[in-house]
Computed example of a mutant assay.
Amino acid sequence: MGNASSMLTQYDIEEVQQHCNHAFSQQEIVSLYERFCQLDRNNGGFISAEEFLSVPEFARLLRMVDGLNFKEFVAFLSAFSPHATLHQKIEFIFKVYDSDGNGKVTFTDMLDVLRDLTGTFISEKQREHSADLE
Rank of each mutant, 00 (worst) to 15 (best):
K125C: 03
A84K: 04
F46Y: 15
F46L: 11
D109M: 08
V16H: 00
L8Y: 09
I93E: 03
R60F: 11
S54Y: 07
M1Q: 04
T9N: 03
V105H: 01
T118K: 15
S54I: 01
F76P: 02
F46S: 08
V105K: 04
N3T: 14
L114W: 00
Q26D: 08
E51Y: 03
E50Q: 15
L61I: 10
T85K: 04
L77F: 00
L111W: 00
N42E: 12
S25N: 02
N102T: 10
F70Y: 07
Q27A: 08
G67V: 10
L8P: 03
P82H: 09
C20K: 01
K95E: 11
F36H: 11
M64W: 06
S31Y: 00
G67L: 06
L53I: 02
L114D: 01
C37M: 10
F94I: 02
C37D: 07
G45A: 00
F58S: 15
L114A: 09
Q10E: 14
T9L: 11
D98S: 01
G119M: 11
R63E: 09
C37A: 15
R41A: 15
V65M: 07
S123P: 01
P82A: 05
V16S: 06
I93P: 01
T120R: 10
G44M: 12
R127N: 10
E28L: 05
M64L: 15
G44L: 02
E51D: 06
Y33P: 09
Y33F: 15
V65D: 04
T9H: 13
T9C: 10
S31V: 05
H83Q: 14
R115M: 02
D98G: 06
F76K: 06
R63L: 05
L8I: 09
L114H: 02
R41H: 04
H83T: 08
V30M: 11
N42W: 12
F107V: 10
I13A: 06
Y97P: 09
A84G: 03
S99P: 03
N42K: 15
P82M: 09
G45W: 06
P56W: 08
P56Y: 12
R60M: 13
F58P: 06
E72F: 00
L68A: 00
L117H: 08
E57M: 13
R35H: 14
K89I: 00
Y11R: 08
A23N: 02
E34T: 13
T120A: 09
D112K: 09
E51R: 11
A4D: 02
H22K: 04
S81E: 07
T85Y: 06
K125D: 06
V74M: 08
K125N: 10
G45C: 11
D132I: 03
V74R: 09
S31W: 01
S5K: 14
I29G: 01
F73A: 07
A59G: 11
F92Y: 13
E28W: 07
S99L: 13
E57L: 15
F58A: 14
S99C: 14
E128T: 00
L62D: 11
G101W: 10
S99H: 01
Q18H: 12
R127D: 03
D12N: 14
I47S: 04
G103W: 07
S130P: 01
D116E: 14
A23T: 03
E134I: 15
Q27E: 13
Y33R: 15
F52C: 13
F92T: 03
E51M: 06
E34S: 08
L68S: 03
L133K: 10
K104R: 13
